Amino acid sequence: MINNEKIFLRNSAPERSKRIVEAVFRCKWSLTVYQLLAEKINRPGEMVRSVEGLTTKVLNECLRKNIEFGIIKRIEYNEVPPKVEYVVTPFGEKFINILDKLVELESEIVV
């Protein structure tokens, strides 16, 4: 008698992480924002002034999306004028490390 029981199931990418990676790579500014935060440039006005072609509107959309994913968080200070800063979350640190590994892997791809 032959046992037809399957030992392995079809493996696929984790659904939530896959959506995050797709969204980050679709947004051409997310990687730049991570680079700015790594350089301790964490205020929106300073971010816009530091990158040619980056607008406040696009930056805000990018920041909002990354906040929804839990990659970065917004810190509001109760000051006049209002002060806002963005920082990478512990989850964001792990996620950005994975993206860095993908960039390293890209350099090893032979076409």
Rank of each mutant, 00 (worst) to 15 (best):
M1F: 11
I2G: 11
I2E: 13
I2Q: 12
I2L: 15
N3A: 07
N3S: 13
N4K: 13
N4L: 14
N4M: 08
N4W: 07
E5F: 13
E5G: 09
K6C: 03
K6G: 06
I7C: 10
F8C: 12
F8L: 15
F8R: 15
F8G: 07
L9H: 10
R10H: 05
S12T: 14
S12A: 10
S12P: 03
E15F: 12
R16V: 11
R16T: 09
S17K: 13
K18C: 05
K18F: 13
R19D: 10
I20A: 12
I20Q: 14
I20M: 15
I20Y: 14
V21E: 08
V21K: 09
V21W: 05
V21H: 06
E22T: 08
A23I: 06
A23Y: 06
V24L: 11
F25D: 10
R26E: 14
R26G: 07
C27G: 09
C27N: 15
C27E: 15
L31Y: 01
T32I: 14
T32N: 04
V33D: 00
V33T: 03
Y34V: 01
Y34G: 00
Y34W: 07
Q35Y: 07
Q35G: 09
L37D: 00
E39G: 01
K40D: 11
K40C: 05
R43V: 08
R43L: 06
R43C: 07
P44G: 09
P44R: 10
G45R: 15
E46W: 03
M47H: 02
V48Q: 02
S50T: 03
V51P: 00
E52P: 06
E52A: 12
G53P: 01
G53I: 07
T55I: 09
T55G: 11
T55H: 06
K57M: 04
K57T: 06
K57Y: 04
V58C: 01
V58W: 00
V58K: 03
L59Q: 03
N60Q: 10
E61P: 00
C62R: 01
R64A: 09
R64N: 07
K65D: 15
K65E: 15
K65F: 12
N66D: 08
E68W: 11
F69M: 09
G70F: 10
G70S: 08
I71G: 02
I72T: 01
K73F: 12
K73Q: 13
E76M: 06
E76C: 04
N78M: 11
E79Q: 15
P82A: 13
V84P: 02
V84L: 06
E85W: 00
E85A: 07
E85N: 03
Y86N: 02
V88Q: 02
V88F: 02
T89S: 11
T89W: 06
F91W: 08
F91T: 06
F91Q: 06
G92A: 04
G92K: 03
G92F: 03
E93S: 07
F95R: 02
F95M: 04
I96A: 03
N97H: 05
N97Y: 02
I98P: 01
L99M: 11
L99T: 05
D100W: 07
K101P: 00
L102E: 05
L102D: 02
V103K: 14
V103F: 10
L105W: 07
L105G: 04
L105P: 00
E106S: 14
S107I: 02
E108S: 12
E108Q: 14
V110S: 09
V111C: 04
V111G: 05
V111W: 08
